[in-house]
Design a protein around this nucleic acid. Sequence first.
DNA 1: CCTACCGATCGGTAGG
DNA 2: CCTACCGATCGGTAGG
Lengths: 203, 203
Amino acid sequence: MDVRQSILEEATRLFAHKGFDGTSVQEVAEAVGIRKPSLLYHFTSKDELRQAVLGDVLARWSDVLPKIFLRASKDEQFDALMEAMSSFFVEDPDRARIILREALDRPDELRALLATHVQPWVEVVAGQLDKGKSRGVVRPEVDTQAYALHVVAMVVSSIALLDSVRIVLGGEPDLATSQKRMMNELFRVARTSLYVTSDKPTP
Amino acid sequence: MDVRQSILEEATRLFAHKGFDGTSVQEVAEAVGIRKPSLLYHFTSKDELRQAVLGDVLARWSDVLPKIFLRASKDEQFDALMEAMSSFFVEDPDRARIILREALDRPDELRALLATHVQPWVEVVAGQLDKGKSRGVVRPEVDTQAYALHVVAMVVSSIALLDSVRIVLGGEPDLATSQKRMMNELFRVARTSLYVTSDKPTP
DNA sequence: CCTACCGATCGGTAGG
DNA sequence: CCTACCGATCGGTAGG
């Protein structure tokens, strides 16, 4: 029904899979079922459409993240956090692809957006982890900021690259199975390298 | 001197930073200092140039990897392997960017190339790690294939995305320092989540 | 390795 | 939301 919304959806899909420069305004318009000039009435320029797509992804991220932090503020923090962040990207892998593409195409622009949408949250997590250090739960050698960043990057790239990379896992070409294996191992790596004991931390 | 080589170098640089679709044959020719039709004499099509660039990266990779494995076949395996793989991409970050871009743009094509250039080596490493399990050095819960894949992906994405992502690390905007911090933490995460004891493994 | 040129497609506008 | 159209640029070819 909402034209603007379906333009955004089709543009997200196409930009994620073919890139911004590899997608023409014509293609997006066709996917929506309107003519090119009609699309350009809603967004005025191709670049404005790109910014809207990126803004939409980051807005949803900024919307979902605080809720996660509130819900997970007691025990099981880590698992809840990991689970919620993963499902944000698993739910729509195009989000991961868009962000990876922007990081490659326009590092300066993305840097500014990450500073407002991601850095504060990494700071919060890093602070929590530092508290965990003094409680003796978190390994003292952890570089908490770099650690948090690595974990986010692993989630994003695991999901965005799974399609090309799953061949390396062995005989099975099944996408869902590969995803589960990668996410399981990712969780294990993240947990083991963070806590002093590999068991669940005592709250 | 060698025209073909300087075309490949400039194309690698431009494709890595602006993407294949974001770079025109004209631009590459200008960077080399020749005219467009002259470039198209050496490569006949833009797509052939792309394949040559990608093939060049993978050829260097296939060239350097066996040497690493021979050199590191005794003790200190892990550190030597990580160090060598990292320096392959640190030496020229455009390699990491090209591979990430191909994974996003043409997953099917890259899948085939990874199957021949990367999978066999992941299999070797995974086999070594499985031996480490029975010797009681490597944690039994490790999914060795998924683990190896995660480590490679972390190295590649750390280097390719560092420019956009380092803002999250805190006040310091220095690129070299951020790289060191990220690589140090990456090594620590990889080592800690692999071995039963966080100390160096007894050979 | 060059000049000259091709049809196709690009993002975007005029005007309704 | 449409038709009609714009100049610029695209990858690629002819011919030397």
